[in-house]
C-alpha cells in the first residue's frame, strides 16, 4: 500500500515510477472498482497510449485508440462507461498511474 503522500489532492499518482499492478488495485478499490481482465485491458492500453504519445488522452481519443487496439466492440464510450463509470478517461488514467488528462476540463 502506498501512503497518501504518494497521491495528489485528486488521488492521481504523483510519480509515474511508483506505479505497479498492486498500486492500480489500490487506486481502483478507492474508487469502488474491482479490477477484472476487462479493466486491466483498458488500463494497459492507457499506459501504452502514454508511452506512444507522452500525454494522457481525453475521452474522444481514448475511444478511438481502444477501437484501433481492441476493436470496435470495445472502442466505444458505452463499453468504457460500464467499466469505469462517470468519467472513464479520467478514472482509468488514475488507475493506470498517469497524470490527470491534460484537457479534462
Amino acid at each position: 500500500m502506498l501512503p497518501t503522500s504518494a497521491f495528489d489532492g485528486e488521488g492521481f499518482l504523483v510519480r509515474l515510477s511508483d506505479w505497479a499492478p498492486p498500486v492500480a488495485e489500490q487506486i481502483a478499490a478507492g474508487e469502488g472498482i474491482a479490477m477484472t481482465d476487462a479493466h486491466w485491458e483498458v488500463v494497459n492500453i492507457l499506459r501504452q497510449y502514454y508511452l506512444d504519445f507522452d500525454s494522457t488522452p481525453a475521452m474522444r481519443a481514448l475511444v478511438k485508440y481502444c477501437a484501433q487496439k481492441l476493436g470496435p466492440g470495445k472502442g466505444n464510450s458505452i463499453y468504457l462507461l460500464t467499466l469505469f463509470p462517470g468519467s472513464p478517461a479520467k478514472l482509468a488514467s488514475k488507475i493506470a498511474g498517469l497524470p490527470k488528462p491534460d484537457n479534462c476540463l
Partner: peptide
C-alpha cells in the same frame, strides 16, 4: 520536458 512530436502523433485520435 515532455515530447511535442509524440503529442502531435496523437492528433488523428482527436480527428
Amino acid at each position: 520536458v515532455r515530447n511535442i512530436a509524440k503529442l502531435i502523433q496523437s492528433l488523428p485520435l482527436y480527428d
